[in-house]
């Protein structure tokens, strides 16, 4: 880890000013990913602007939406009574992520911005276009068991590791940011990018922008949600595949649905077509099987992650069954 300058910001404006003056600077909040990356020499900011004490931690309801400050801790959000009541899917996803200690440190904004856990990204001795553009994708022909089956490019087949983001994309959240262009709102589904030719860029956040918070519109999903995370151990592991499922059910018929996947793409993977296919259908395993097949359109496996082509639809079916209380 190089020596760097450290500045603590006490107001969002000051943080934005500070970062606009120094291209080598980065924000730090929880530090749970950034400090790790700095130790391994994967990122080397010359200045850290500590935003962890900015007053962006509130969780409020405003009109028909829930607003969560970007610096609210993952554990604070998961333990919040309003969130538990209104957005249980988010709570489940948060609690499926990392460990209790990390959730006590990690912020909502930082969770969205965490980098991939691709083995090749994490080893500076191996090629990775995301870490070192032009060096090649180590995973493409390498050990790609954890990797993408949707939306990848030849440059990068890494997946986004966040659980929280899978729930947020399913729940139609909006990210509110501030920066050189002033405040703007980014639909969550557009927040993360696909790798394309520029895998080094994870999100559509512009340089110098600061996430202020996320907003989740009201919904009628509180009763029928499930976040299923399939992983190599029972806890504290990144997803092989995860599914965020939210259903609005009336008289055993699905009235509305939200469905998203984690661990399968460079971004949290929303399944809009599958959602539409669920609407109006009866709650039944056969409905879920059909929809799961639809969800897999365009999926492609690599040498070591072919299993995801089967595990993913299975996980979708299972998540829908649990959400709809079929099991």
């Amino acid at each position: 880890m190089i020596q760097f300058q450290y500045t603590r910001a006490t107001a969002a404006k000051a943080a934005l000013d500070a970062i606009s003056r120094d291209k080598t600077a980065m924000f730090i909040a929880g530090g749970t990913n950034l400090v790790d990356l700095m130790k391994r020499g994967i990122v080397s900011p010359e200045r850290l602007i500590d935003i962890s004490r900015l007053p962006l931690t509130d969780i409020t309801t405003e009109g028909k939406s829930l607003k969560i400050g970007s610096l609210a801790l993952n554990s604070t959000v998961a333990e919040n009574k309003t969130v538990q009541q209104k957005q249980p899917l988010l709570v489940q996803a948060l609690n499926a992520g990392a460990s209790a200690q990390i959730r006590n440190m990690a912020t909502v904004g930082g969770n969205m911005l965490q980098r991939t856990r691709c083995h090749y990204f994490y080893d500076t001795a191996l090629p990775c276009n995301k870490r070192e553009p032009g060096s090649g994708c180590g995973a493409l022909e390498g050990f790609n068991r954890m990797h993408a089956i949707f939306g990848f490019s030849e440059k990068c087949i890494a997946v986004h590791p966040s659980d929280m983001s899978v729930a947020l994309v399913a729940l139609d959240a909006t990210v509110v940011v501030d920066g050189p262009k002033g405040q703007r709102r980014i639909p969550f589904i557009d927040f993360h990018r696909l790798p394309g030719d520029r895998p080094e860029i994870d999100t559509n956040l512009l340089p110098g922008e600061l996430i202020l918070g996320v907003e989740i519109p009201d919904n009628r999903f509180a009763k029928n949600v499930h976040y299923l995370k399939v992983r190599d151990r029972a806890s504290y592991a990144f997803a092989l595949v995860s599914v965020a499922a939210a259903l609005q059910i009336e008289k055993k018929v699905i009235r509305d649905a939200r469905l998203a996947l984690g661990g399968v793409a460079h971004k949290p993977w929303r399944l809009s077509e599958a959602e539409r296919a669920l609407v109006g259908k009866p709650v039944s395993e056969s409905t879920f099987r059909e929809v799961a097949q639809l969800a897999m359109k365009g999926a492609k496996g690599f040498k070591y992650n072919e299993y995801k082509l089967k595990l993913t639809p299975n996980a979708i079916i299972q998540a829908l069954k649990v959400a709809s209380k079929l099991v």
């Binding site: 083995h119 080893d123 191996l126 180590g138 022909e141 390498g142 050990f143």
Partner: peptide, 12 residues
């Protein structure tokens, strides 16, 4: 797991 192209562990 080792990536044999590099003779280097990837799960490490």
């Amino acid at each position: 797991v080792m990536d044999h192209r590099f003779g280097r562990y990837v799960t490490k």
